[in-house]
Simulated scan of single mutants.
Amino acid sequence: MSDVVIHQVRPTKVLFTQGIMQSLTQVQWVEQTDTSTYVVTEKTPFHPVSHIWPDHPADKGFLVFNGKQYTVTDCVTGAFDIENSKLYKGTDIPVKRGEPGWYFVVLHELELDMALNINDAVELVVDARYQTALSRGHSAGHLASYALNKVLEQGYWRKDASRKDVLNNRDFHSYAQTLSLVSENKSTDSYRLGKTLKKRGLNVAEILADLSLIEARVNDVLATWLATNASVVMKCEGDTLTDSRFWCCDLGIGESITMPCGGSHVQSLTEYKDITIELTFKSDQELEMITKAN
């Protein structure tokens, strides 16, 4: 990146975990490339796409400055090298979070003609409809993964497993997941059913034979869980981008889920009419689960 204004950047405070979708804030850093302007602010309601596990897309919305709206064309994770006053974007980030001498920030990308200065006051406004649709898709995907584990626990393993989920079911999702993608009111998960899982004791042939039955049972579990109208709470160990965040949902009857997750989420299961999954074998070693939220 070029055309840098030297300034001490601090870690971005994130607001999306609190359901806040617009905020007044100050500009900390402005940097231009040949095609875009990148803006770092003190705080933001925008959820950036992760450079490590980019399953949850960036929020959409706009920045308001001097009464004019500017579209935020992308929102990504950035890392600021304090000693060298250098900003790295997305997959160019050379360090892990928590590295001494580095701050992680949210980078708002705007069109090139955006002219801002350090300490300018701006308003950031998230597209609430889009963020809410992503949140529904993401939380639904979490519930579906635990429901799938629960159903497969009932007769589809011939060996015990050292890795159990928080509901004490063998963690098929964790063992087998190779890809996930959150989209509006939807989540897509891909699972690999290779030799390693068969050695761990997964009965892949039985799963193939019973795929429609498994799908129906998972949907039954999801319907039962939604009927609890349980709250979804994001527990945060701090307000910066790299502080640990946990998705928590107490379904009652001894089924309470707490899991690490950095995405945006619903606040209650009452935000759903229903959640259903579809299971498809893409090959003899790849299973796809599509979760749809209504």
Rank of each mutant, 00 (worst) to 15 (best):
M1G: 10
S2N: 15
V4S: 03
V5Q: 12
V5S: 13
H7P: 00
R10G: 04
P11C: 00
F16T: 00
T17M: 05
Q18D: 07
Q18G: 00
M21V: 14
Q22S: 11
Q26H: 11
W29G: 05
V30S: 02
V30H: 03
E31W: 02
Q32L: 05
Q32P: 04
D34I: 06
S36F: 03
S36H: 04
T41Q: 10
T41F: 08
E42H: 06
E42S: 10
K43P: 01
F46L: 04
F46D: 02
P48G: 01
P48W: 00
V49Q: 09
S50T: 12
S50Q: 09
I52D: 14
A58C: 14
D59C: 09
K60S: 07
F62H: 06
F62G: 03
Q69I: 01
T71A: 11
T73L: 14
D74T: 05
V76A: 10
G78M: 10
I82G: 01
E83P: 00
E83C: 04
N84I: 00
S85W: 11
L87F: 12
K89R: 13
G90R: 07
T91D: 09
P94S: 06
E99T: 08
W102R: 05
Y103H: 13
Y103Q: 10
L107P: 03
L107N: 02
H108L: 05
E109L: 08
E109Q: 14
L110C: 11
L112E: 13
L112P: 11
D113F: 15
L116S: 04
L116V: 03
N117A: 14
I118C: 01
I118Q: 03
N119K: 09
N119I: 00
V122L: 05
L124P: 08
R129N: 14
R129T: 14
T132F: 09
T132S: 15
R136M: 12
R136N: 04
R136K: 14
S139F: 12
A140R: 01
A140Q: 02
G141V: 02
G141D: 06
L148H: 03
N149I: 11
N149L: 10
N149R: 09
K150N: 06
V151Q: 02
L152T: 06
L152H: 07
G155P: 01
W157S: 02
W157L: 08
K159Y: 15
S162C: 01
R163P: 00
D165L: 12
H173Y: 08
Y175I: 08
L181Q: 14
E184N: 12
N185R: 11
L193V: 03
L197A: 09
K198R: 15
K199V: 02
N203H: 11
V204G: 03
A205F: 15
E206K: 12
L213V: 13
V218A: 07
A223Q: 15
L226D: 07
S231H: 08
S231C: 06
V233P: 06
V233D: 13
M234A: 07
K235L: 14
C236R: 01
G238I: 11
T242I: 15
R245N: 01
C249E: 06
D250I: 09
I257H: 08
M259V: 11
P260S: 02
G263P: 12
G263V: 10
L269R: 15
E271G: 04
I277E: 12
L279A: 09
K282L: 15
S283A: 06
D284N: 11
Q285A: 01
I290R: 14
K292Q: 09
K292R: 10
N294M: 13
